[in-house]
Nucleic acid binder design. Structure first.
Lengths: 331, 331
DNA sequence: ATGAAAGCGCTAACAC
DNA sequence: GTGTTAGCGCTTTCAT
């Protein structure tokens, strides 16, 4: 009696249709041992019934989902969008689904999402971590296969990052070569590593390291704008600013216009991350390009790899000079 | 004997620890009937053991995953990124995970992803459809709850879209008011609906409808650039171009620069979709703003809704005038 | 109000 | 080589 409710075709159905046992169906479909003849029958029956094995059943049995969880601060940020694209692209070749969550750079929200991943029995997770080491304790204890991307996070978790220190140094050298001596860094919260690299770069080129030249912002566009405006107003002596990400760069350009600060006449600007609009911007922005897509791809490769994995993969960055930097202005 | 392998805490463990049956644990945890005293015991035991119910077990039993599948052409495109953000934001309030897939606007790839969703028993799917009606046949037959976003797709599937016809009309009227009579439309493949709206708008303002003024591009940036350059070269008499999306707009600006076509002196440009960089662009771009985030959010609301749903939700667009349009140039 | 038991669809032992 | 069977962790009748 057909009660109208769709019943899913199962192994059992295929087994009956093919006149074999369920185990045989399972074997054939997962490429196990079987006689050519049996294989034929099973495949035919499966095709005839339009059989789709249920990932639910398989995963429960195997006590894990093949898929991967991906946690990023903000999908709207071009950098993370490209990173996601890289992960998706790699995951595709494994035929595995990826579940993405937005942390908003909030450790609490991140912890919440980690909980969800665990509930889902996701055993592979890639994350741009916002929380400190302890946020990730439960995840590690749950035994999931974790890889960090874009940020170092904790030392016991493999990570794929851009060589921001290298990029920073190149940029600072470039700026110093232009005569700048007061270079400000507009950083996102959680970019401690990058701030440290900035200070190091300053030292390397023999510039004084002033922590007051580092301004922090939260992940949102609003916060970025406020920080950029604050930086431009409170540090009129800074002749160059380094924006720690494309959202921060965008905010800096906007704030500069609003405050009638000319780029590059009044202040030079170098932005982290090359985005399509950097070239369209007026003036075209000099940037430290990062292989966002590749970071995602490599992270995915790592998370799929079973055996020993390198503790850290560092991908090169590149200074792309356009028109947002000029010689130090007269003061 | 501890063999080092993490065994997941299950209902059974909690039941034993609390001295009750598994059914009771399940009831308490899903807010069913239970005496205050029993509830107390169960909750305490669950907390003590740090119990996380397995979504796998629950889903298999319920024969569905609560989560939602999301299919978009390109996560890298700011419009879709914002749409995703909207979906994620709504899904978060339901505590449900969302799995995203990239179709690249390729029906074949889309069909493949639909297959994956079915295997995962995903019963809720939101998609920006690229395939024709038949691509979605299997999904519908599998009984999943489908909502289209940004594109109409087939009539039997509810959709959330922007009022692009309205936006297009406003834009065409604006351009016509500026004296333009040859307006070109740079469309993405699959934007048939939008092309039709464009023709309709032309008629409304009394301009001749020439199909030769419509140029198509694929989803990629390269294809967009080629199409934009082609348009600019092959139609030197077109004094205004309407770009059907932000990637196309970006390509148009780039191509125009390359070909030394000045905006807005030589050609006026209106771009579909407002993006952060539109304002930073030189010149700042006049755009038809679309509530991308909201489209995603509303689509998610719809897909979560159980009862009767509206067949179509149309969200308003808005013409944001900046500086990329000018009066028709002398010819 | 609570417990026992029957599966959801699948795979992996284990028999034959 | 192939079938039988026992669960994976959960919810949900059905008794009690």
């Amino acid at each position: 009696m057909n009660d109208g409710i769709q019943r899913r075709t199962t192994v059992k159905d295929v087994a009956e249709a093919a006149g074999v046992g369920v185990a045989t169906v399972s074997r054939v479909l997962s490429g196990g041992q079987a006689s050519a003849q049996t294989r034929e029958k099973v495949l035919a029956a499966a095709a005839r019934l339009d059989y789709r094995p249920s990932a639910l059943g398989r995963n429960l049995r195997r006590r894990r989902t093949g898929g991967i969880g991906l946690l990023v601060p903000d999908v709207t940020d071009s950098f993370y969008a490209r990173l996601i694209d890289g992960v998706l692209s790699c995951a595709r070749s494994y035929g595995e689904p990826v579940t993405v969550g937005v942390t908003g750079d909030d450790p609490e929200r991140e912890a919440e999402l980690i909980g969800t991943m665990i509930e889902q029995s996701m055993d592979r997770v890639i994350a741009v971590p916002s929380g400190d080491g302890e946020t990730w304790g439960p995840a590690l204890r749950a035994g999931l296969n974790l890889v960090f991307a874009d940020r170092r996070g904790r030392a016991d978790v493999p990570s794929v990052i851009a060589d921001d220190a290298g990029g920073l140094l190149t940029a600072v050298e470039y700026l110093a070569g232009l005569g700048h001596r007061k270079i400000a860094f507009l950083a996102r919260h959680g970019q401690a590593q990058r701030v440290a690299a900035f200070s190091a770069a300053l030292s390397t080129v023999g510039l004084p390291v002033g922590p007051d030249l580092v301004v922090h912002a939260r992940a949102s566009r609003d916060s970025a704008y406020a920080a950029a405006a604050g930086l431009l107003q409170r540090h009129p002596d800074a002749t160059a600013v380094l924006a720690g990400g494309n959202v921060l760069g965008e905010a800096t350009v906007l704030a500069a216009r609003e405050l009638d600060v000319r780029i590059p006449r009044d202040v030079s600007l170098v932005m982290f991350d090359d985005v399509p609009w950097a070239e369209l911007c007026s003036p075209p922005l000099t940037v430290i390009a990062q292989p966002a897509q590749d970071i995602g791809y490599r992270a995915a490769e790592l998370v799929f790899r079973q055996g020993r994995r390198p503790p850290r993969v560092i991908l090169p960055t590149e200074l792309v000079v356009r028109a947002s930097c000029g010689p130090r202005r007269r003061i």
